[in-house]
Design a protein around this nucleic acid. Structure first.
Length: 297
DNA sequence: CGTTTTTGACCGGCGC
DNA sequence: GCGCCGGTCAAAAACG
């Protein structure tokens, strides 16, 4: 059916040089101000990925020079990650619900009765999305290196976009973090990366330097704290941004309270990361990372 | 040979 | 109820 998928998934290896030209924009939940995007499509994409982005946010600031500016959403202090589930009627907070599955994702290994031909995953069990956030990266490389290892588990054609969307899962068997990557249909040089969940383990390290990347920090710490970490200056609403809310959404692979480390295996806090990761020479990984609004090139 | 990617099918939610 | 669409599964292929 969906054979349009394989459309033009740009060869990542082709233009490695372009990887140096990488700037990014973050879309977090409104707790720090939402970064809006040049096109409605991207905006809608990110609205879906991100909690609480106003549906009708009128103040989209997409300047001609391509500068995307942080916009204060009208949602002043609803940093509740509860709204992660878009428009569902369930009002339970995601606090302790680790989305779809029990840790091991119960692959086929378990007890899959042969009489169930379909992928009868936990039926009736409503999927509760984990906290997500997305950010945009100007890069020719689709899948940016972030210090974690990902396995691709799916690719779908995106409606109204020539570019497919790729789905990745953290290869750590105990980690349920997912990531999806797609290109902006309006600006093919922009990669929209969305993380869902939080890592409960360290990065595998980088080939050069072993620096924890910004993206990794994104993935593990999620929007509120992270954005504070990255744009301490740009955030006008820092006082509103009580990071306490973060604690409620950061669940380091809860349910994995095993020897692997649990909390102890968590990523360092962004503050720590900040002090040790100035990826000045990592152009091959995430490229030059600049704060939103400081687009390079 | 183990791991990852590819890819068609399936499933569930949502809008009409 | 039906169709669309996003997300996931899983077998097969590709890769190292």
């Amino acid at each position: 059916m969906e054979d349009k998928d394989r459309a033009a998934s740009s060869d990542p290896t082709a233009d490695a040089e372009f990887a140096g030209d990488t700037s990014w924009t973050l879309a977090a939940d409104d707790s720090d101000g939402a970064y809006l995007f040049p096109g409605d499509r991207e905006r809608s994409i990110l609205r879906e990925f991100v909690w609480n982005l106003e549906p009708d946010q009128p103040n989209r600031i997409g300047t001609d020079d391509g500068l995307w500016k942080p916009v204060q959403s009208s949602l002043t202090d609803s940093i509740e990650p509860v709204a992660a589930a878009p428009s569902r009627s369930n009002n339970q907070s995601i606090s302790s619900s680790s989305s779809e599955d029990p840790p091991e994702k119960s692959t086929v290994s378990d007890d899959k009765p042969p009489e169930i031909p379909s992928k009868g995953k936990n039926k009736g069990q409503k999927r509760i999305r984990q906290p997500r956030f997305a950010f945009m990266t100007k890069s020719e490389v689709d899948h940016l290196e972030d210090g974690y290892r990902w396995r691709k588990y799916g690719q779908k054609a995106v409606k109204n976009s020539p570019f497919p969307r790729s789905y990745y899962r953290c290869t750590n068997s105990k980690c349920t973090v997912k990531k999806r990557v797609e290109r902006s249909s309006e600006d093919p040089t922009i990669v929209i990366t969305t993380y869902e969940g939080q890592h409960c383990h360290h990065t595998v390290g980088f080939p050069r330097g072993g620096i924890i990347s910004h993206e990794a920090a994104f993935a593990s710490q999620l929007a509120p704290t992270m954005s504070q970490f990255y744009y301490p200056i740009q955030l006008p609403r820092d006082n509103n941004n009580n990071n306490n809310s973060f604690s409620s959404i950061s669940q380091p692979c809860q349910a994995y309270d095993d020897a692997e480390g649990g909390l102890s295996a968590m990523m360092p806090l962004p503050a720590d990361v900040s002090s040790q990761s100035q990826p000045s020479t990592d152009e091959g990984l995430l490229g030059d990372i600049v704060p939103p609004g400081m687009r390079i090139r």
